[in-house]
Amino acid sequence: MDIPKDKLLWIYERMQLIRVFETRVSTEFGKGKIPGFVHLYAGEEAVAVGICANLTDADYMTSTHRGHGHCVAKGVDVRGMMAELFGKATGICKGKGGSMHIADMDKGMLGANGIVGGGPPLACGSGLTAKTTGTDQVTICFFGDGASEQGTLHESLNLAAIWKLPIIFVAENNGYAESTPAHYHCSVENIADRAAAYNMPGVTIDGNDLFAVYESAHEAVARARAGHGPSLLECKTYRHHGHFEGDAQTYKIAEENEKYRTELDPIKRFKDAVLARSLVSEAEMADIDGRVNAAIDEAVKFAEDSPFPEVQETFTDVYVSY
């Protein structure tokens, strides 16, 4: 499938924006500037971007504890994101949610989630809204291999199937649920094989191949928009960082880790592919790199310069507080 040039440039820009954002978050977290827990998405960029390249702002998304990449791919402002991670008043959630609860309703981004398997039922809800109100909005439900063992996911797959909801369930199988490898925690080799039990299409693809993700998502999104119901798309991928920042990652296999950071890196593979086919030039990508780096520098500066929320904010945004 040919992807238009402007879309290819957008894809490269978004993947780099995620990578540079996450790398910078790791640095700022290491400096103690970012409180709490952060779970980084670097290494999985082709999944979020390949999927979201098929969406509009009106489409919905549910996410996971590893949600920064989903936000960036959905077009959430990186300044507001960075400020949120710093706990600042200018954060996209006023500093009240932080990394694990980053959300942007205006972009259809229904929240990162601190509960593994928390998102799929919510996705059924936004799918039901779209179906009931007769829009053509689709919902992307991102979940990890760990969440594939949660009852909530299985209940949601069934609900989406019987109600023919416009949802694309995207399994981001990065091989590990925290420290536990998928081959231990999962009864099947391919999570998408479970789609058969819910009477929906299921496809397993190389999630570090942007083109494969884009094409599979294109088909599943078209099916959902046309009212033909949900799909399950499994993207095999790998996280460059630990489960959380600070994780010593003793459970990883060193050679595997190295391979995914080099030859199997999704951004490198995308670059090599578009250069080989002369679809995008080195200069165009260098230009994007410059803009991305500047945007992240600016986002960090914005976050640092922003004030913390006033303590009265503790008592807002909740029904009855005291």
């Binding site: 706990g87 959630c93 009240k96 932080g98 904010e313 009855v320 005291y322």
Partner: peptide
């Protein structure tokens, strides 16, 4: 603690 969820931002959590 107050009758609110736990806020993330450090000054808010300290206040909480």
């Amino acid at each position: 603690a107050p009758h609110t969820p736990v806020p993330f931002s450090p000054p808010l959590e300290d206040h909480y």
